[in-house]
């Protein structure tokens, strides 16, 4: 089943159209043009693109934080309209970049409960969902902790738990690891991969870290508001020259492979460290 589908979706930021978010004000005239793509249920898709390529706009369009100017968006077969938006928002959870901007309460369990309370669930159900969500992100022992005293990675996991408490079928992470240190980043990616594999949640991961994109089933590259590449991550990174024109780079291992090839060493286009080491060993001995 299709989890989400964009058909010919366009959106233009008008000059001074801030939508309550000052970061949008500067985008006057920026356009998303004729976006067509679909994500299957249970899929893990990475979205890549330089700053200002339209990645975040795509995320905001998919649950109508921004309403498309034209085109259709369907979520699990239901067209996204003014009427269906609240039902659909229960199915799509978005986690944003800055953990400090996404917490509304001072205690972990209150924060996780916020969304569930908002949709009017019964008290016992909310309790069960908090337990489920905190367990899913590995934060059960912090249920009564003060959020201000958690690390960045832990705060971001609380934000994910808050989204999970709504039992969404799709989760969108909009550069959710950008402000974390490597340990926090690993924590989040472990949680995301596990949610995708075990809970079968569809994941759309927007990221600048090429290494994170390698974990996905498929990657989409955006440039100036358009989708310019769609393929398996390895397929995307094999098209090195094209990526450069979109102001993107290869993961580091890809750069080393290119460097070796340029120097006349015929190693294959692998993204696996041990395999590369093996091939180098064959070439030199």
């Amino acid at each position: 089943m299709r989890a989400i589908e964009f058909r010919d979706v366009s959106y233009t930021y008008e000059d001074g159209d801030a939508d309550g978010d000052p970061s949008n004000a500067q985008r006057g005239g920026f356009q998303i043009k004729h976006l067509n793509f679909a994500v299957e249920e249970g899929e893990f898709v990475a979205v890549l693109g330089h700053n200002g390529s339209g990645k975040s706009t795509l995320a905001r369009l998919s649950n109508r934080l921004l309403a498309a100017d034209s085109g259709e968006i369907e979520v699990f077969g239901t067209p996204l309209t003014k009427k269906t938006v609240y039902e659909i928002r229960k199915q799509i959870g978005i986690v944003f970049q800055n953990p400090d901007n996404q917490t509304v309460a001072s205690i972990v369990e209150d924060d996780v409960a916020f969304g569930a309370e908002n949709i009017g669930l019964a008290r016992e159900e909310i309790g069960a969902r908090i337990s489920f969500a905190l367990k899913a992100v590995g934060m059960e022992q912090y249920r009564n902790a003060t959020i201000a005293r958690l690390s960045g990675g832990q705060k971001q996991r609380v934000a994910i738990a808050g989204v999970l408490a709504l039992k969404p079928r799709i989760m969108i992470l909009d550069e959710s690891t950008a402000m974390l240190d490597p340990r926090g980043r690993r924590e989040i990616m472990d949680v995301v991969v596990r949610l995708n594999r075990e809970e079968k949640i569809t994941v759309i991961l927007i990221t600048h870290f090429m290494e994170e994109a390698l974990l996905a089933d498929r990657a989409i590259v955006m440039n100036r508001g358009e989708i310019v590449m769609q393929d398996k991550p390895a397929g995307i990174f094999a098209r090195h020259e094209e990526l450069l024109t979109y102001n993107l780079t290869l993961p580091r291992i890809g750069m080393i492979v290119k460097g070796l090839n340029a120097g006349g060493m015929p190693v294959s286009d692998t993204l696996d460290l041990e395999k590369l080491a093996g091939e180098i060993a064959e070439c030199v001995s």
Partner: peptide
């Protein structure tokens, strides 16, 4: 370089 895209980092 935190939070920048790959080109911005470089």
């Amino acid at each position: 370089a935190a939070g920048l895209d790959p080109l911005g980092k470089r």
